[in-house]
Nucleic acid binder design. Structure first.
Length: 1064
RNA sequence: GCGCGGGUAGCUUAGUUGGCUGGAGCACCCGGCUGAUAACCGGGAGGUCGCAGGUUCAAGUCCUGCCUCGCGCACCA
């Protein structure tokens, strides 16, 4: 292999600087200022301007909350892909973004200003309130910037898109109008959990905050049929919805029973009841649970037989019939169950989602019996008109009881949502709402989703696909203040006008003004927020005035527009959008599946009839070390700065990438991070330091140096490096960043540090120049530089620091390495050598022979030619000489292992017996038969070479072991265990040296310092003069004295020999 | 309730189309080695591969049911 590999790691600089200790925090903060001065990020992007664009879109965070560790995770995976693609030559712009609208912002501000309801906000002043929101949005911006910079997330935060800016809002308007023009936008109703106290409806997330277990009265109510002397029993936990009753739902396949009361029950308590002879209908399954009276079953029927029967309203006049044909009749609904209640569901159209949907489907009258304050409207019943519904439960029960319409009352315990701010129970309440007709584009959504490459794929197919298959129309309006205003104006008679730009607004305002309406100014930079836009009155085609629909958009709509609104498309001319759509890569937490991942696709489908992103990495949740979700209330939040300030951002990022697959939940464990730091980063640094300190000492220059003479060891690590390059690239391409990181780490720790450097240490100690030393230095240079490039996307600091010192330029300007030639043979041979070295140590342990006592000879039996490695092996094994021995039988015998796969296919059920026969057989002779082509038969089966695997096992009494190499050939190592005076002398010398060296270290002596040494031995082997001299050299003893007999100073004993020594 | 993904040693995890004795790392114990770092090497202990059935000559792997954790969705009349 050529010395300078296919990878260009030529240096543009001279001699590298010595490294010093690894201080990650100091190293990283120094680099941050270098990057800032040098504009490294900007340059790294610009230098690839001519490259193929790789389009990334930043999911905008809200800066009114503190960034946490989960944001660091997401940003690491965003960053590493962008960096990697940049190194591959792509032009990767990274525009920052901020999500600035929405309820979370309003809630923060309401808390701060102590505004408890919408009325409070209006009293405070909407303009003032929104001003406060606009400011609140930036509360933690500096915290975000600091985190972003410190963790080295390269992203342009100086020119971000901001959802509250006029340009952004205008693009959103444009998109809304596109939808409106396609008739995808419509006004409807949605039943939402609503708090009358605050005048606010809540998203499911907020509702989840307020579930409380409550005990409330539930009632069984009798609905008298009009054409039959019988009542249908229905059950409800919300008596306040009964005045709004307009229908009864039954399951068409559910079996119902008609019963006649025969006598009063015993122990009747509470209100309600029935008279003897009264007839009731309810689900057969629930009959026993509900009916307290003694009664006879008269008949049974399917729900479908009840459908269409009409009954008397409970509160006549509370709801107008209008033109409804189905009001106060029995209706079928397939969702009716018999798990509780009576199997008959009281339906009040405006106060339940199922009720509402059913009502719309069959044409029930949709009228409120409760106003927005949560009070009954006038004309229901004199006892409850105008009162807060939750206070009326008892009165309603009484009214029904007096009318003979109550069968039973029962206290009922259940979880019910409450306002998480005031604690009031929420009312499910049908409200006006604008919708995007997502159901109309469902097929397109599914088609587009198929084109997205998801990681992991099951999120796309499963969770996201499931969501799309059940897609519902998107309720995009919110009755709130701080958000993108819905740009729809409506006249009294229902004419709609949707505006798609500021200039359209100006036009319409001018038109209205011309007709005599006195509108405020509408300049080019008119603030596109409430209440300013509310104040414009427009004119309909028939000359009516039009007011803006008083809604803002769901803030998810804002971020869903990011792909084009970030460029102010189409008002900027459209070119930047054209060049940046669709997006190549987005990456967020899996919680964005129904959030951003969906809204991006929803908007691009409706507006552009296009996919939005080609690849989506969905990250798993981050949990604490115990696997619990991190939350403020649990107090188990990890502050990223704790780790930035100790192990550093590099180790933190590396840990997060290698801890597991990105899409799996990650248990963030501080000990794991520490381990990453100690194992990966300290090890890498020490390798680097070893290289660079000697390089500095020797004046090694990578670009000037003559070619050295590479050893097998050099060629091996270079091949392993190429293998690593190829593997890392492949893993990155398959989104297996965690596997790539683990492979790199394994290379650094096991191959580079624990073998290459360990085996090479003495090569660099040699002060004389040599081709061997040069080759070692060149190899280390090449390995380290390439390694930096592979690591740069994950840990951009240490890799840049090392790269700069070795090459003179930032690793972030470098190209991603292309794998060169891989010599598989050398890799396999070295693997075998390392295994033999381990095997030798095992042999010694088993034979009870200490490592420092040399063996005279070692034999390698069979296997590939390892003569190039005999020196290494001799040293590793502490053997005087290694040789090749061909007479296997001297040390080994044959064993045959059955090949279960082959035999299983052949013998099936009889496999166990065949296995037993093979085990019991004489393997030596069986193998001879097979070799001779005379296959032995067992239970009638021909046993061929394919059915068994040959193993060579050392014979008893030999200090030998056999290993099976990758190609299936066995290799054995045999050690000579005999002693000689010479060996004993050498061994003792090594033990003495080791003790003295330890003493030196203990005394904290400089490496160059000399000592004066005295050694006494008793009951010990003789130490030959050559070995005495060896001790003197190794321990840098300027004076020495060796004598026999008892001595003084430090004492130790080895294999019965007693040794005393003194070091001064 | 439905869907998705997990459950492998005390902890973190690898385990391909079913096929040799289920691998690593951390921690622990014993030993070795070391002017080699928060290191390295050998050995040990530690596993009912969540549980129970089934398919198969053979199941961590395939099938069914269940338990359990996480996430999402729905429901809570």
């Amino acid at each position: 292999m050529a010395l300078k590999s296919d990878i260009d790691v030529a240096s543009t600089m001279g001699i590298p600087q010595p490294a010093g200790d690894y201080d990650s925090v100091a190293l990283e903060s120094a680099l941050l200022s270098t990057w800032s001065d040098e504009k490294t990020f900007e340059k790294s992007v610009e230098s690839r301007r001519k490259g193929e664009p790789f389009i990334f879109l930043e999911g905008p965070p809200t800066a009114n909350g503190k960034p946490g560790i989960h944001h660091v995770v997401a940003r690491t995976f965003k960053d590493l892909v962008c960096r990697w693609k940049t190194m591959q030559g792509n032009f990767v712009e990274r525009k920052g973004g901020w999500d600035t609208h929405g309820l979370p912002v309003e809630i923060e501000v309401q808390k701060r200003l102590n505004l408890k309801s919408n009325q409070d906000i209006l009293d405070y002043g909407m303009a003032e309130f929104n001003k406060a929101c606009r400011e609140s949005v930036w509360t933690y911006e500096s915290a975000w910037r600091e985190m972003t910079e410190r963790m080295a997330y390269w992203c342009d935060l100086d020119n971000p898109y901001v959802t509250l800016e006029n340009n952004y809002v205008e693009s959103c308007w444009w998109a809304i109008k596109k939808m409106f023009d396609q008739d995808l936008l419509y006004l409807g109703h949605k039943v939402l959990p609503y708090c009358p106290g605050t005048g606010t409806s809540y998203s499911s997330h907020e509702v989840a905050l307020g579930y409380k277990e409550v005990e409330e009265p539930s009632v069984y109510v009798k609905f008298k049929l009009t054409d039959d002397d019988v009542s249908v029993l229905a059950w409800t936990t919300t008596p306040w919805t009964l005045p709004g009753n307009v229908g009864l739902a039954v399951g068409p396949e559910v079996e119902y029973v008609r019963v006649r009361v025969t006598s009063e029950p015993e122990n009747w308590q509470g209100s309600g009841g029935a008279i003897v002879g009264e007839e009731l209908i309810l689900a057969k399954d629930l009959f026993k649970d509900v009916i307290r009276h003694h009664s006879d079953e008269i008949s049974t029927m399917k729900g479908s037989e009840l459908v269409g029967k009409s009954y008397h309203p409970l509160f006549p006049g509370a709801v107008e019939r209008g033109d409804s044909k189905t009001a106060w009749t029995i209706i079928e609904a397939d969702w009716v169950t018999t798990t509780d209640g009576t199997g008959v569901v009281h339906t009040a159209v405006m106060y339940g989602e199922d009720d509402y949907n059913l009502g719309m489907k069959v044409g029930l009258p949709a009228q409120h019996t409760v106003d927005m304050k949560g009070e009954f409207i006038a004309g229901i019943h004199e006892k409850i008109d105008g009162r807060y519904v939750k206070d009326c439960d008892e009165d309603i029960i009484q009214i029904l009881d007096e009318a003979g319409l109550l069968y039973r009352e029962k206290m009922y315990i259940h979880d019910y949502p409450h306002c998480w701010r005031t604690g009031d129970p929420l009312l499910y309440y049908a409200m006006d709402s604008w919708f995007v007709r997502m159901t109309a584009v469902k097929e397109r959504l599914l088609e587009f989703n198929d084109q997205v490459e998801w990681a992991p794929d099951w999120v796309g197919e499963g969770r996201f696909g499931e969501w799309l298959r059940n897609v519902k129309d998107w309720a995009i309006s919110r009755e709130r203040f701080w958000g993108t205003p819905l740009p729809v104006w409506r006249s009294e008679s229902g004419e709609m006008k949707c505006l798609g730009s500021i200039s359209e607004l100006q036009e319409e305002v001018a038109k209205a003004n011309a007709a005599g309406i006195d509108n405020p100014e509408c300049p080019d930079d008119v603030d596109l927020h409430r209440p300013i836009v509310d104040d414009f009155t427009l004119l309909s085609s028939t000359g009516e005035t039009m007011q803006r629909e008083p809604f803002v958009m769901d803030c998810w709509f804002d971020s869903g527009c990011a792909s084009f609104a970030q460029w102010h498309h189409p008002f900027d001319g459209g070119e930047r959008f054209a060049n940046n759509f669709p997006i190549d890569y987005i990456c967020e937490g899996v919680d964005q599946t129904r959030g951003w991942f969906y809204t991006l696709l929803a908007v691009s489908t409706t507006v552009f009839d296009s996919i939005c992103y080609k690849r989506c990495l969905s990250l798993g949740l981050i949990l604490d070390a115990e696997g619990k979700k991190m939350s403020k209330s649990k107090g188990n939040i990890v502050d990223p700065w704790d780790h930035f300030n100790s192990e550093g951002a590099d180790a933190t990022r590396w840990y997060m990438v290698t801890a597991g697959a990105p899409w799996n939940p990650m248990k963030f464990d501080a000990n794991g991070l520490k381990e990453t730091y100690a194992k990966m980063f300290l090890t890498l640094w020490n390798v680097y330091r070893f290289h660079v300190d000697y390089a500095a000492l020797d004046g090694f220059e990578a670009d000037n140096a003559e070619e050295g003479t590479p050893s097998e060891l050099d060629l091996w690590i270079r091949s392993r490096l190429q293998q690593l390059v190829a593997g890392t690239t492949e893993q990155f391409e398959q989104w297996n960043f965690h596997k790539a990181g683990r492979d790199i780490e394994n290379f650094v720790v096991n191959d580079l540090s624990n073998w290459y450097v360990r085996r090479s240490r003495r090569r660099l100690w040699d002060e004389a120049e040599s081709g061997d030393k040069l080759a070692c230095q060149q190899t280390l240079h090449q390995v380290l530089v390439t390694l930096c490039r592979l690591m740069a996307p994950i840990s951009p600091f240490i890799s840049d620091s090392i790269h700069r010192n070795l090459v003179g330029d930032s690793v972030h300007f470098a190209d991603w390495p292309l794998a060169g030639e891989i010599d598989e043979d050398i890799i396999a041979r070295m693997a075998l050598v390392r295994e033999l070295a381990e095997t030798g140590r095992k042999i010694r342990v088993d034979a009870n022979r200490r490592q420092r006592l040399p063996c005279a000879e070692g034999w390698i039996v069979s296997g590939p030619d390892l003569s190039a490695y005999h020196d290494i092996l001799a040293e590793e094994l502490n053997v005087e000489s290694i040789s090749i021995e061909n007479d296997l039988d001297r040390f080994q015998r044959i064993e045959l292992n059955p090949n279960r796969r082959a035999l299983g296919a052949k013998c099936r059920q009889e496999l166990p017996q065949v296995l037993a026969e093979i085990t019991a057989a004489d393997h030596e002779s069986m193998w001879e038969q097979i070799q001779a082509g005379n296959n032995p038969k067992i239970l009638g089966y021909d046993i061929t070479a394919d059915d068994v695997e040959l193993r060579r096992v050392e014979r008893e009494g030999f200090a030998a072991k056999t290993i099976t190499s990758e190609d299936g050939n066995d290799v054995s190592l045999v050690l000579d265990m005999t002693d000689s005076a010479e060996l004993l002398s050498k061994g003792l010398a090594r033990d003495i040296t080791r003790r003295i060296q330890a003493k030196r270290k203990e005394m904290d002596l400089e490496i160059e310092a000399t000592i004066s040494l005295r050694v006494w031995t008793a009951e010990a082997p003789e130490i030959f003069p050559a070995d005495e001299q060896w001790i003197i050299n190794e321990t840098r003893a300027s004076s020495s004295q060796f004598q026999t007999g008892e001595g003084e100073g430090d004492f130790f004993e080895v294999d019965g020999a007693k040794v005393w020594f003194q070091v001064e």
